[in-house]
Design a protein around this nucleic acid. Structure first.
Lengths: 217, 217
DNA sequence: CGCCTACTTGAACCAAGTCAACAGCAGTGG
DNA sequence: CCACTGCTGTTGACTTGGTTCAAGTAGGCG
């Protein structure tokens, strides 16, 4: 978003593309000299592992940049996939580098963005390394929904929920089976409801209580 | 290092300090408007948790910047502690921002540094979320030693080892007891030796085999 | 209708945690 | 010099949270 407004003024070789639900947005390698930004829909960035497994690193929605760690640096090992149908914009990395020289503010914006992602990665790491299954799943749900709340106008606790339980599992380091069990107990306690692609948080307080660490905003 | 040389030319309000082994280098908050770079010794960055627990996020040695995620952005929740006696340099953040405007290259250097850290955080996350205890401990040892190898001239497999098993545990999300057990089996298999602060890798091949994922460089 | 994929639930199993006792060692002070 | 203390690591016995395997249900879509 900040980046969007920061670069919209100049010609940065921008154009648009669409990725259908479930399809790959960008493979780890070879990766073209581009910067990709999600305009609409959900995608996720992941590290492919052996035997079809994957570690999900981040979920991206409108305004988020893919592979921020790779911009201006070495290329990583991560790929990205469309969670819903996704529209995204593509900028030329060379053009951005060019632009930075003339307009250093842009570089600072990018650095802030990277810092934000680093902090989020560390939060997730902490949850996975130190917390129980219930805490991790609760963390996932809260993290995801609080992100949406930042943008939405109303205070409703009903969210479009585009994730499979397998996605949650691949993010927080559990099996899909155990995620299912865990969410079942949350439902049984009356903390949330889940119907046809919508998640409703019925007791945010309790969920927050469960995963209280470092007063996470 | 890259940053070091990049900023050494101008006056960035630099001065030096020392932190004694085990002492805190910088608390999460309030954190002064500074950029800290390790010049000598080892420190680690961590997220303090409840009940005296902590998640270690990264180990820093000569040339590494503390809290890269916070520079030019929001302040995070992480603190830092000296693992050995540590000498570090302090720059004024305001001076660096100032400098960036005149010399955008500096911002790119910082972004690369941030990208590097983000990629490392993701590697650690993947290890913790997806790997067994043996794999995680092996990953830790290899990750740590390969870092040293990059800088040292000789090919020796003997390293000064400043970590407690508790540090390893706090990094990879295990208990110290289990780290002890795991390293005991590595020793029993003749893969490594450990005497008075020195670690010797006797069979790097086997250790690498154990934690082969994403061809991690 | 029938197939496929996502989710649910049960039972058995196992990797890692917990609790506890003990050894080795460094530092400290009498 | 030795006794005392505290910290780090080791090892054993037991417990447990989460995985694995497997069978069954429910929706979505050709």
């Amino acid at each position: 978003m900040a980046l969007e407004s920061g670069v919209a003024r100049g010609n940065l070789g921008k154009h648009f593309k669409v990725a259908r639900k479930g399809h790959i947005v960008s493979l780890a390698k070879p990766r073209p000299d581009q910067v990709i930004i999600v305009c609409e829909g959900w995608a996720f960035e992941y590290l492919p592992l052996t035997k079809g497994r994957q570690q999900i690193l981040a979920f991206l929605s409108a305004g988020d940049m893919l592979f921020p760690g790779d911009i201006l640096g070495q290329q990583g090992e991560s790929s990205a996939r469309a969670l819903t149908d996704v529209q995204f914009g593509i900028f030329s990395m060379a053009a951005i580098k060019d632009r930075i020289v003339r307009e250093p503010q842009l570089a600072m914006v990018i650095s802030e963005l990277l810092g934000e992602r680093l902090r989020e990665a560390n939060q997730l790491l902490t949850a996975v390394a130190q917390k129980s299954a219930e805490e991790r799943v609760a963390w996932f749900l809260l993290h995801f929904t609080s992100r949406l709340r930042k943008w939405s106008a109303d205070e409703s606790e009903r969210y479009l929920f585009p994730f499979l339980q397998q996605h949650i599992a691949d993010t927080v380091g559990l099996t899909a089976v155990h995620v299912s069990r865990t969410m079942a107990t949350f439902r049984a306690r009356g903390w949330l409801r889940l119907d046809t692609g919508f998640l409703e948080i019925l007791n945010r307080r309790e969920l927050e209580q469960i995963c209280q660490f470092t007063s996470s905003r």
